[in-house]
Simulated scan of single mutants.
Amino acid sequence: MRVVAAMSGGVDSAVAAARMLDAGHDVVGVHLALSQSAATLRESARGCCTIEDAGDARRVADVLGIPFYVWDMAERFKRDVVDDFTREYAAGRTPNPCLRCNEKIKFAALLDKAVALGFDAVATGHYAQVVETADGRRELHRAVDAAKDQSYVLGVLTAEQLSRSFFPLGDTVKPRVREEAAERGFYVAKKPDSHDICFIQDGDTRGWLTRALGAAPGEIVDTDGTVVGSHEGAFAYTVGQRRGLGLSRPAADGEPRYVVEVRPEANQVVVGTADLLGVDAITGDHARWCGPAPEGVVRVGAQVRAHGEEYPATAWADGDTVEVRLERRIRGVAPGQSVVLYDGTRVVGSATISAARLERSA
């Protein structure tokens, strides 16, 4: 099988490419150039896609003896991921750019280009498993290494995309991956993992958004409308946030305050007590199914954060919309986040949260 190995320049994608080669596939390494102004050297472990990363990926390809190319997708990454991220925050929502990148870049733009060039599949260093059933269907499952599991950010993949995807690290824990990289003589064996939002290298999301959207001073209000503070842009806040509020007036009851609503039209941030954050019903749109869409009401596990807890729930689909009813309340669910549904370890699908509310009083 002819396979494109997506090589970020990190240890995971390096070992994934090596394992595909060991399995007998015809492998070509591809590094995606996603930054329109890639720095020569990375400033921290947060970023990726720098010139240095491309060089690291090339060195691994040389060790493996496979062809290596750099594909420039910076313009599409900016349009489909960075600009989408900015628009979502401006609209008072909290997006997950990793899901959008997997959907629009790695398993749309990259996979589509690979197939157009005559390749059969794409392999990445994601920690997830593809399991083939007795009838030949391919299912997406959680990784063996629960601490590194990335099935949540892959919940946007369709059955067709899964049929052309390989995740060779899904059955391995991260320490063993580093050991294997060292045994293979890869320079990147001890390279730090990139984390958080790759295009915000200093980790300051609020500062990045302020530079992108401009400062927009406004009010922070309590649920009764009382002004309790000020902000430089409502876009920098998310439902469930407690830190960094800078409230000028303490709560009369002495209880901590959290963001309970962001009102972009009024440029207001609303704060309230923790009990106002509890929800047990979620509506999602932009449904994506990793196999057949569920029929009727089904029991699932629902996860709303990349490394968050899975909650027992029921769900049903209505076209592009998904309704999820949680068996117990959870806090801090923000519009724009993704809810990913599981059946055991299998990923059923995902949706972008458009609303969350409390339906049961007890």
Rank of each mutant, 00 (worst) to 15 (best):
V259P: 13
S350R: 00
E103N: 12
R137W: 03
T223I: 15
K191M: 00
A236S: 14
G336R: 05
V260S: 13
S8D: 13
S44T: 15
A33R: 15
A16S: 12
L140W: 01
G185D: 02
G218T: 08
A128W: 00
V15L: 12
S350G: 14
I105T: 03
G291M: 08
A293R: 05
K174Q: 03
C48H: 09
Q337P: 03
G349R: 04
D285P: 14
V269Y: 08
L117W: 06
V4F: 01
S163F: 00
K113Y: 06
V81P: 14
K148D: 05
D112V: 00
L154V: 09
R249E: 14
N102M: 08
A281P: 07
A146K: 05
V60Q: 11
K191D: 08
S37Y: 01
V173S: 09
A57I: 09
E43D: 10
E180A: 05
R242N: 15
Q150H: 09
T283D: 03
V228D: 10
Y187S: 13
A91F: 01
H141P: 02
E255Y: 00
E103P: 07
S165F: 01
A147F: 02
R206N: 13
T283W: 02
A274I: 14
A5N: 12
E160D: 15
W289E: 11
A17M: 07
T40Q: 09
G344E: 04
K148E: 10
A128F: 01
A109F: 05
Y69M: 06
V173E: 14
V340F: 00
F186T: 08
S248Q: 14
V15N: 10
W289F: 10
E359K: 01
L213F: 03
T172F: 06
A362W: 09
E52R: 08
V304D: 05
S44N: 14
D62C: 06
D120K: 06
P292H: 08
S354N: 09
L21P: 06
T223N: 04
G319R: 06
F235C: 11
A5Y: 00
L213K: 05
L326D: 02
T223W: 04
A14Y: 00
L169T: 09
V60E: 12
S13Y: 00
V271F: 12
C290M: 07
G118H: 11
D120F: 00
Y187T: 08
A266Y: 02
S44I: 13
G10H: 08
A17G: 13
A74L: 11
V60S: 13
D62G: 10
V63Q: 07
G65R: 11
V188K: 04
G278S: 14
G336A: 12
V304C: 06
D135M: 00
L341I: 05
L140C: 12
V30I: 11
F235L: 07
